[in-house]
């Protein structure tokens, strides 16, 4: 007597094949994400950093345009002293004032003040060469930000930054 041996579970091979296709597409997405992260497109990498200079050469800033929230970032600002200046003044304004917290600044300024619009730091001129200030910052807010960095009496450096969640 012939017996049909049917499998214990119903066949859903069309659904299964579609699931596999979605899975493979997901793997490609994951590979894209990891590549983007390695390149710095999600912050912290070669493509996220850039160097900007003021039009009059008073400031050259190495900053990052892509960052993640609550992740420490390091910026370096090179300031050319104005001739016959006793102190070098540095202004941080725009979103730099509110949405990024300055964790550390090396060298420490001799005087630091802040108004609603800007933070102002006065530095002693270095004995040799230009003043180089290293900033350690911690973004506090997600999204697009507009920052301005300026030496007293110099042209501003303005740039946008995106902070990932």
């Amino acid at each position: 007597m012939a017996q049909t041996q049917s499998p214990p579970v119903p066949d859903h091979m069309a659904f299964q094949r579609r699931s596999w296709r979605i899975e493979r597409a997901g793997w490609i997405g994951m590979a894209v994400l990891v590549s983007a992260a390695l390149a710095g497109l999600l912050g912290d990498g070669p493509l996220s950093r850039t160097t900007l200079a003021a039009t009059d050469g008073s400031i050259e800033a190495q900053v990052s345009r892509l960052d993640r929230i609550t992740r420490d970032i390091d910026w370096t600002i090179r300031v050319q002293a104005a001739p016959a200046a006793e102190t070098i003044g540095l202004q941080l304004s725009g979103d730099l004032r509110d949405t990024i917290r300055v964790e550390d600044m090396v060298p420490a300024p001799v005087k630091a003040t802040g108004s609603a619009e800007r933070l102002h730091f006065a530095f002693a001129p270095p004995p040799d060469g230009a003043l180089v200030v290293s900033l350690r910052l911690r973004p506090q807010q997600v999204g697009w930000h507009r920052h301005t960095i300026q030496r007293d009496g110099g042209a501003p450096v303005t740039f946008t930054q995106f902070v990932f969640p």
């Binding site: 793997w27 994951m30 590979a31 994400l33 990891v34 992260a37 999600l42 912050g43 993640r68 929230i69 609550t70 992740r71 420490d72 990932f164 969640p165």
Partner: peptide, 21 residues
């Protein structure tokens, strides 16, 4: 570290699972 961002968590998880796959 002391990085609380979701982006970092996602990158770490995807990297670990991706290596596994």
């Amino acid at each position: 570290g002391d990085d609380f961002s979701i982006t970092t968590a996602a990158i770490v998880i995807v990297t670990l699972v991706g290596i596994d796959i």
